[in-house]
């Protein structure tokens, strides 16, 4: 069933490619706005780059959270999923994974290109990509809880940002920190291991909490 839900969500994303592209272009635009607002001084941009890319990734991933459950909620398919004899947590894990494939992976692939805009050295680009690769699934998993809790509420989109952005902070700190450490010539593997630990913890707990939230929201 895990495979079915991923297949289904990817199929749906294929049929609505514009949604996927919107998130990606949002990411690109936000990152490109910063040089315009603070000036094109290369040294400053280089120091800012890891933070800017990470904050933009946080916002882009958060904006697409609305799609994770709300379409299924409106047409009644979510109700059917709650009645599935299989574990709802597993199903939520599948949906979060599909969400990451559709929104997280494009961001990871685009990040090195944006890093070049900011004149990041090659090895910093690699670290940035690796950190995003480990960190963006955490965003989808934690975001699933927020999306499930705000299902069908007035102003759910803004509310979800209040709920999940504070929880994203550790990923942001270590994600951007890894790149900064690399640029400063210090070891960055501790940062990446910590993001990896966050990923493991959220794989275990987040689907369970989100499944519980879905049951609460649909009652």
């Amino acid at each position: 069933m895990f495979m079915w839900i991923i297949k289904r969500d990817l199929l749906l994303a294929m049929r609505r490619q514009s949604d996927v592209l919107t998130t990606l272009f949002f990411f690109i635009i936000v990152v490109s706005l910063f040089p315009l607002s603070v000036g094109p001084e290369m040294n400053m941009l280089r120091t800012m780059a890891p933070g800017v890319v990470w904050v933009a990734a946080l916002l882009a991933s958060m904006l697409s959270l609305g799609r994770m459950f709300s379409n299924d909620y409106v047409d009644g398919t979510l109700e059917q999923m709650l009645l599935s004899p299989q574990s709802l947590s597993l199903l939520v894990l599948g949906k979060a994974f599909a969400h990451w494939l559709v929104t997280g992976v494009p961001l990871v692939l685009m990040a090195p290109v944006l890093g070049i805009q900011y004149d990041l050295p090659t090895d910093a680009l690699l670290v940035l990509t690796a950190a995003l690769l480990l960190g963006t699934p955490v965003l989808s998993l934690i975001g699933a809880i927020g999306a499930a809790l705000t299902l069908g509420l007035r102003g759910g989109g803004v509310l979800v940002s209040l709920l999940v952005l504070p929880l994203y902070i550790p990923v942001l700190i270590f994600g951007a920190g890894a790149v900064e450490a690399n640029m400063a010539g210090v070891a960055f593997d501790a940062h990446l291991s910590l993001i990896g630990a966050f990923l493991l913890v959220s794989i275990v707990f987040a689907p369970w909490a989100a499944a519980l939230s879905l049951r609460v929201s649909l009652e």
């Binding site: 069933m1 079915w4 297949k7 749906l12 049929r15 609505r16 047409d75 009644g76 398919t77 299989q86």
Partner: peptide, 20 residues
């Protein structure tokens, strides 16, 4: 409980699979 963007047969197969 059907998805607008999926075809009729995809809908039936997916909803059955998710129902176990």
């Amino acid at each position: 409980g059907t998805k607008d963007d999926l075809t009729v047969i995809e809908n039936l197969r997916i909803s059955s699979a998710l129902a176990g």
